[in-house]
Amino acid sequence: MSLSRAFYAIIRRDLVLALRRRSEMANPLLFFVLVITLFPLGIGAQPNLLEAIAPGIIWVSALLAAMLSLDSLFRSDFDDGSLEQILLSPHPTSVLVLGKIIAHWLVTGLPLLLVAPLLAVFLGMPDSALSVLLLTLLLGTPVLSLIGAIGVALTIGLRRGGMLLSLLVLPLYVPVLIFAGNAVEMAGSGLPVDAQISILISILLLALVLAPLPVAAALKMSIN
């Protein structure tokens, strides 16, 4: 089997598996909506206050939702041994792992875009910021999956890796949070956001190229 066919086969397999277990797909989404609902309850529902913190809230919640969904990335494959098969295959592990990350993002990251407009309305975000919010989510959530995969690969062999995973992954999410949150905020006040979007694109490209390598190395280490 050629490399590209193996790559697509992995994506297809993961998507089929995800479609058969739809509740796992829904969980991060529900979490995302729920956390954002908690903020107005916690800090009061003054419209101007909510509008001011809306970009930050949405992005912090997206970060947490992405982090919570990470465990499903390699868990079932690790438990039933198919991860070992992937590592044993003649193709470079990093490329196959990239396929898994892409499938995971399609299942857990992309749906965040679908509910984001609803949440923007909840928090009274100006309409001008909505398209930028969607753009930052489109560019930012793949980075969250890519960086998060490193953390999962390092902790997959541990019985209680959950808290540790957040300690490993969240500090690395800081640049995405800063640029994405800021872009949405700027767009809300009608300022240009080209710089932030360009930086997000470059972060995405960098993560796309570099992140699969440590993921592959960490998986090999975790399996042994």
């Binding site: 390092l154 541990l158 540790l164 300690l167 490993l168």
Partner: peptide, 10 residues
């Protein structure tokens, strides 16, 4: 702290 925690956990 992540590095120290990871080392301690394995």
């Amino acid at each position: 702290l992540g590095v120290i925690g990871l080392y301690g956990a394995i």
